[in-house]
Design a protein around this nucleic acid. Structure first.
Length: 417
RNA sequence: CGGAGCGUGGUGUAACGGCUAACAUUCCUGUUUUGGGAACAGGCGACUCCGGGUUCGAAUCCCGGCGCUCCGACCA
């Protein structure tokens, strides 16, 4: 894409009402636009980044044999009344609204109930199990206090996976698979080395759930990390009994602020029983389905990457998440030669299916460099009269800052990999 | 929901209760310039968040509302 076609502009300064680093950088670089506290719109660069994250998540979900759906955002109170979660005392994050005829509606903050209800049409027998179903969809939560930029929003994107099994054991095995897949996702988005599987509160049907916590001062949670960094426990559940059970000593634990980027739950029959999602087992006996739910927030993930991987010059996107792989910068000035050479290189990169943002604007070099640093694409190529003279291209790695001069074929081979 | 702070051109800031609300940046025109946010000249852009009050006079003081941020509580 040519940068001249991008309608967004970068800014030198962040709006004063944004304090969190993720929001400041994402706004300055033109990835998002703030509408309300906790409500952000995605601009072309932000949307592309989000789509990259989603694509990666989808590919991992497919490995689990999960299939994608898209459930409605508007919710029928009846099925939530059945599970007891329509009640404001039970769930205080509902956005509730009304039809013209005064009957109530809710905006989905999660989807256990509707999916469980929906599956009654499709799951009758043990032969219909197991099932893994997911969606990537906008959730609405009426948070009393939105905060930390995109971290805790009132409208946000969530990947929610639900699994349905004939037995608890089967569900537990699936849970372990999801756990590995999640770790793989965090590794791929560049957060692997600072994201820890963390024991957290379990709820009605299991002692623990697991959270994936990314270490960051911007996090809302505090976790205890064992000295060998092999075990982590959310401070909320780190009672003496729990620590003993996990074989941890209080004095060996180090507290860290962390961002909860994912959470996986065993639900047991918490939803299948009230919503009557039953199946007939091999003996013809009716049984409730065993369930699990597995959440991960693409928008929070995007914000977390912005927060923890950025530096003083701007965002730093890992390959695979970045909206484009390459930032091609033309320092043409009045030189038609440079203009043509950079245009030609742009076409060539596109032909080789390399995702490139081409800064074809008529702007001073310093501005282009500053923008490239701020936007944070992993690779930067400069074409100028200097590089034409040398017969090489200048190639810079955003993350390491390493600059090399490289010839075109070599570069394309490297980037096309 | 409790507490604190802040609302002034698109953005960041300034202005004693008193001139036509200033400066920088962005943006527009032109000249020049092109390897780290260039230079010069000219120009556009604000009912100072909203409503009320005090005052000869309010961006400024008072009251109410709304919004934003932060701390806390909350967070299936």
């Amino acid at each position: 894409m040519k940068q001249s076609q991008l309608f967004t502009k970068t800014r030198r300064e962040a709006p004063k009402d944004e304090v969190s680093k993720n929001a400041q950088l994402l706004i300055r670089a033109g990835f998002v636009h703030k509408e309300l506290a906790g409500v952000y719109s995605y601009l072309p660069l932000g949307l592309k980044t989000l789509e990259k994250i989603n694509r990666l998540i989808r590919s991992e979900m497919n490995k689990l044999g999960a299939v994608e759906v898209n459930l409605s955002a508007l919710q029928n109170p009846e099925i939530w009344q059945a599970s007891g979660r329509w009640n404001d005392q039970e769930v205080d994050v509902w956005f509730k609204t009304k039809l013209k005829n005064e009957s109530e509606l809710g905006l989905g903050f999660t989807h256990e109930e509707p999916l469980t209800n929906l599956l009654r049409d499709h799951i009758k027998s043990y032969r219909d199990l197991p099932r893994a179903i997911y969606q990537i969809q906008t959730k609405f939560r009426n948070e009393t206090r939105a905060k930390s930029g995109l971290m805790r929003g009132r409208e946000f994107l969530m990947k929610d996976l639900y699994s349905f099994h004939a037995t608890q054991t089967e569900q537990e095995e699936f849970y372990q698979q999801v756990l590995l897949v999640y770790q793989n996702i965090f590794k791929q988005v560049g957060l692997g080395d600072r994201t820890y599987l963390t024991f957290a509160s379990g709820g009605a049907f299991s002692k623990y759930s697991h959270e994936f916590q990314t270490l960051s001062e911007a996090g809302e949670d505090t976790i205890y990390l064992s000295a060998d960094e092999k075990l982590a426990v959310n401070i909320e559940v780190a009672t003496p009994e729990v620590l003993e059970e996990l074989g941890l000593k209080k004095e060996d634990l180090v507290p860290h602020k962390a961002i909860e980027v994912g959470n996986i739950f065993s639900l047991g029959t918490r939803f299948s029983e009230p919503l009557k999602l039953n199946f007939l087992d091999a003996e013809g006996k009716e049984q409730p389905v065993w369930m699990g739910s597995y959440g991960l927030g693409p928008s929070r993930l995007l914000a977390t990457i912005a927060e923890v991987l950025s530096d003083e010059n701007g965002l730093v996107w890992p390959e695979g998440v970045a909206p484009f792989s390459v930032h091609l910068i033309s320092l043409a000035g009045k030189s038609d030669e440079v203009k043509q050479a950079s245009e030609k290189l742009y076409q060539k990169l596109v032909q080789n299916k390399i995702e490139v943002l081409f800064d074809d604007r008529d702007a001073p070099a310093g501005e282009k460099f500053a923008d490239a640093d701020l936007i944070g694409l992993p690779n930067r190529i400069v074409v100028s009269s200097k590089t034409l003279e040398a017969g090489k291209l200048e190639f810079k790695n955003r993350q390491t800052g390493e600059v090399t001069n490289i010839d075109e074929t070599e570069l394309i081979r490297f980037l096309a990999k």
